[in-house]
Design a protein around this nucleic acid. Sequence first.
DNA 1: ATGAAAGCGCTAACAT
DNA 2: ATGTTAGCGCTTTCAT
Lengths: 338, 338
Amino acid sequence: MSKKTTIYDLAKRLGISPATVSRSLNDHPSISGKTKKKVLEAAKETGYRINKFASNLSLQKSNTIGVIVPRLNSDFMSTVLSGIETIANNAGYNLVISQSLEQEEKEKFNTKTLFESGVDALLVSLANETMNYDHFSIFTDRKIPLLFFDRVIDLPNCPTIIIDNEAAGYQATEHLIQQGCKHIIHVSSGLNRSVYKLRYAGYRKALKENENNFRERVIQVDNFSPPEAKKVIDFIKTSVHPIDGIFVSSDSLAVYIIKELRSNGYQVPNDIKVVGFNNDPVAQVITPELSTIEYPGYKMGKLAGQSILSHLSGSINIETADQIILKHRLIIRESSQK
Amino acid sequence: MSKKTTIYDLAKRLGISPATVSRSLNDHPSISGKTKKKVLEAAKETGYRINKFASNLSLQKSNTIGVIVPRLNSDFMSTVLSGIETIANNAGYNLVISQSLEQEEKEKFNTKTLFESGVDALLVSLANETMNYDHFSIFTDRKIPLLFFDRVIDLPNCPTIIIDNEAAGYQATEHLIQQGCKHIIHVSSGLNRSVYKLRYAGYRKALKENENNFRERVIQVDNFSPPEAKKVIDFIKTSVHPIDGIFVSSDSLAVYIIKELRSNGYQVPNDIKVVGFNNDPVAQVITPELSTIEYPGYKMGKLAGQSILSHLSGSINIETADQIILKHRLIIRESSQK
DNA sequence: ATGAAAGCGCTAACAT
DNA sequence: ATGTTAGCGCTTTCAT
């Protein structure tokens, strides 16, 4: 029961060759139905299990896709992963998932590890820290499909899946302006990542177009955890101009900010209006409900999976670097209404 | 640059044997320092990368740990996964993660797939649907380490990591009773899973101990999504006894229920008090803040990782089935206060 | 300290 | 339709 049976065992048992066994197991067309049946039965009886190590070595492929994300435990990211997993799983691929924890070093290490472990493709959402992209060359050099999603970088022949972050940032800010906000600040993190840089650009663009005495002001936070919200409040309290609008690059932080604001005596949206980003589930359950940009994470994950699978199956020309831009949407709730 | 170099290439290049190259690369003690240095240099120059397929086949191990969870996109689960990943990554292990989506069939399939892909160990949190556990025998038969966390089942020689769910359910309910609740209902899902069954048992025990005319009543929901909250409200509205306390097996659902309650004119906690489960971040940002049971997900993940690694390294007797019970804690916030 | 060679188990090109 | 056989690249026992 515990001794593992190989195709050689099956071959001997049935008096046929290992090749025939292998072919039968793989449903090769040129094997007779009766032989296949015999083999399958023997396999079941003996508890035969394919040895992927050997199979992978022979085929030089692993049916495995690597994924590197900044962190697993964010609502958005785990939703994207869920989408990727669903697609991969249905196609018979396994997912090897690792976290960079926003560190360039860890991202490098994970890239190397995943390469060596022989993943057939790699999906990456970049760490905030990452400034250099040479570590991905082991993939690009060997033409192993590499795709970036959400936190992307433009590399030759690497598809990207994003939303139009600049437009989203613009809309969020424009909305606040239309609600009468005069002094709108932007709260973000990792401004060297294009996602955040572009939202910031959209914010600035909106301010500029509605020329008056608006002052552009971005508060950079280290991450989207509760203590960072305090920094924002401190700024607001000491600002010479009365802040009346906040566009935050993350719902989770926006929510903490609102909480902090309220416990500091500010009324949301009366005194200060807030727009977040992502449309995390939390946006709908807090008081006041949070206006935000809907960012379709599950769909992004599914598309990332599908895109990489079609590259793997060769149904898309791998030389064609594509860029998929998903639709986003401003959702107006209570937190930003006049 | 694109042609892959093997240990044979290095051996030829340096005029030594492949065995020596292999040993050098693995820092084998009986290789001279100079030879090692030569090899490492040549490896670097040629861009040599180990081929794990071959290595795995030879060693019959993959440095990979499989994980099956009900779903990736829950705050609790992604936090646990984050803990597992951190430990595994530091120990040089990769994580293959898959979702059962609460379906027994998918769990079976994933178990088989992960087995065949040669994971060195398997970590599982069971699907709600799963009633039969034979699919895990491929692991237990071959003494491949198998560990259950959160949603566990008692299998021979399989460690489990849990909290004392019965005590937690008891405390939550007892607390509501002490706050003056007379008609407390319990909302849960997947009552055939011990996690939920035990919380329910704790709930019943608390009611029984505080003998009076309390009626035990459990509302089973299909999952913890918003629409399910409506079912709960419907029950409350039509109940002959005025419901004044709710113990919910999940913060995410508790939060939706509170929202529904409020929009139906109920005051929380004045009319109805609510206690959730897990201490998701959302518990602290909603209004009123949610009382809940703190369930240390990250710690659970780290422990699961550590436990399985020590089994793998043989530093723990694999025959010793251990059960780790993590501390939980009732956190009293506004939603349940008199 | 190093080398020779036999696996590890599967696949596929090339027979038959 | 089936068999033969040469890899796939690394590890490791057994020499030397």
